[in-house]
């Protein structure tokens, strides 16, 4: 697989300069009902890099990916992908852009009435007129990369959570997109597949020249493969930098998250009223 990919990588485009931004988010605001999820987020994702987005559970990482993919609409601010404002595009423009983005859903989101092979083949069948033999080769290559070539005849419902996510990963890279957004790719993986997947994410990025956005809680694993890290909390970017600088930072937000400390400025609890009062009043409110 790698050799073929290498040929593809030897395209006329030279490796992009580090400051070449693929995704530019400026002044992003988004709320769900009364709850403000993003309150002025600025974020830049460089082309050809692995950018990690970390943050506590419920801090809006999945929401951010959905905003970038144009599935949600921000209340204010702009999101530009490859120079195009995602939320100003026409429907056709948006779909053309999405064809160049892959997204790995937290739940996998496999089509349950298709088997593993057909799930990976789905985007190829939808978007390319490739002959069956080539589709078969591509699908098997992608499945081999995630270690599931032997599972190609299993129905989607017969997969474990971790396997489903790897199939979803194979599907996300089927069309060789310019950018892939991974929502928690490492959750539910055993140590071996975790290490393999982390390596795969890195290799895909370097060999095909992808841009990768990795959302994860897994601080150590993610820091190991990321070029740049953003830490989200409380609707804002509370820390950013290369993994090395973040490891040395003195910001209490980032420290608490990176070191996994129970006490600190990052709240473990979803916003709530006073605990004792809540227990005493005895009525739902």
């Amino acid at each position: 697989m790698t050799t073929r990919k290498k040929k593809k990588a030897a395209n006329p485009h030279p490796p992009p300069p580090a400051d070449d931004a693929l995704v530019v988010i400026r002044g992003l605001r988004f709320s769900r009902g009364p709850r403000v999820i993003f309150d002025g987020v600025d974020l830049t994702i460089s082309r050809g890099r692995v950018t990690a987005i970390m943050g506590p559970s419920g801090s809006g990482k999945t929401t951010l990916l959905k905003l970038i993919g144009g599935q949600l609409r921000p209340d204010a601010g702009t999101i530009k992908v490859d120079g195009e404002d995602v939320h100003r595009l026409s429907r056709d423009g948006l779909y053309a852009l999405r064809r160049r983005m892959g997204m790995l859903f937290q739940s996998g989101a496999l089509l349950t009435d298709l088997d593993v092979f057909e799930n990976v083949a789905y985007p190829l069948r939808e978007h390319t007129g490739l002959p069956e033999a080539i589709i078969r080769d591509i699908v098997l290559m992608k499945l081999e990369a995630v270690g599931l070539r032997g599972a190609r005849h299993l129905a989607a419902r017969e997969l474990s959570g971790g396997m489903a996510r790897r199939v979803a990963l194979a599907r996300a890279i089927a069309l060789d997109p310019m950018m892939i957004m991974y929502d928690e790719p490492f959750t539910g993986q055993d140590p071996i597949s975790l290490a393999t997947l982390a390596k795969l994410v890195r290799e895909l990025n370097d060999i095909i020249g992808l841009t990768s956005v990795v959302v994860s809680h897994d601080v150590a694993e993610t820091a190991a493969i990321a070029d740049y890290v953003y830490v989200l909390s409380g609707g804002r970017v509370v820390g950013k930098g290369t993994p090395a600088t973040l490891a040395r930072t003195r910001s209490r937000w980032v420290r608490q998250f990176m070191d996994g400390l129970p006490d600190g400025p990052v709240p473990f609890h979803y916003p709530a009223g006073d605990y004792v009062e809540d227990l005493m009043t005895g009525e739902e409110g």
Partner: peptide, 21 residues
């Protein structure tokens, strides 16, 4: 159920319009 299991959202992100497919 396809909506609840994010299959429709997954299709949208694959640039496949679930309304049409």
């Amino acid at each position: 159920l396809m909506k609840a299991t994010e299959q429709l959202a997954g299709m949208e992100m694959m640039a496949v319009d679930p309304l049409r497919r």
